[in-house]
Computed example of a mutant assay.
Amino acid sequence: MRGLGILGLNDSLLRARIRNREVTVRVLLLDPDSDAAQRRATEIGESCQSFTAGVRLSLELLADLANDGATVEAYLYDLLPAWRVIGLDDTLFVSAFGEVHEGHTSPMYQLGPSPYGAFWRGIRRFTDELRRTARRVV
């Protein structure tokens, strides 16, 4: 949704690996100019200005990484977020956004492909389609 804790901030979890060109990063962030961003900010009790400033900060920092030579793709989508998904190769880590809390307050589930992995296939399909219909900005 905003990407601050995982990618945006200087001490975030993946920045060192990205900067060292060890990974390719694709990020889907909520479009700060969308109605969904305003709605999400209201849901979590945050001002729309501070919420969208967080998204814009993440975009600026991702663009800086790309300008430094890291492989970064950033996309903006305009749907109200329901899932927080982190994909590492074929492994997905999934939590849900509720009406009154952020994804980091929900349990995170690890999913992998399996013969009966319908939930994994559904989440993968959803994120692929979200990226296909989103607007690439970095």
Score class of each variant (00 low, 15 high):
110 Q>H: 04
119 F>S: 15
116 Y>L: 07
99 E>S: 11
131 R>T: 11
56 R>L: 11
91 T>I: 14
15 R>A: 08
2 R>H: 06
7 L>Y: 08
90 D>I: 01
126 F>D: 03
4 L>T: 13
103 G>D: 11
58 S>W: 04
107 P>V: 02
88 L>N: 07
1 M>P: 09
75 Y>K: 02
36 A>R: 03
27 V>Y: 00
91 T>G: 03
41 A>K: 08
95 S>P: 02
58 S>Y: 01
19 R>L: 14
2 R>T: 15
91 T>M: 07
39 R>S: 14
99 E>G: 08
21 R>N: 14
106 S>C: 02
51 F>G: 13
31 D>W: 00
43 E>H: 04
42 T>R: 06
117 G>I: 06
88 L>M: 12
14 L>I: 05
15 R>C: 11
32 P>Q: 07
138 V>L: 02
136 R>K: 11
96 A>H: 13
110 Q>G: 10
27 V>A: 10
21 R>Q: 15
124 R>V: 13
124 R>K: 12
41 A>N: 08
38 Q>R: 12
70 A>N: 12
81 P>R: 08
55 V>D: 07
47 S>D: 13
52 T>H: 06
62 L>W: 01
51 F>T: 06
14 L>R: 02
37 A>R: 05
76 L>V: 07
130 L>Q: 10
81 P>I: 15
137 V>C: 02
60 E>G: 09
28 L>M: 09
23 V>R: 01
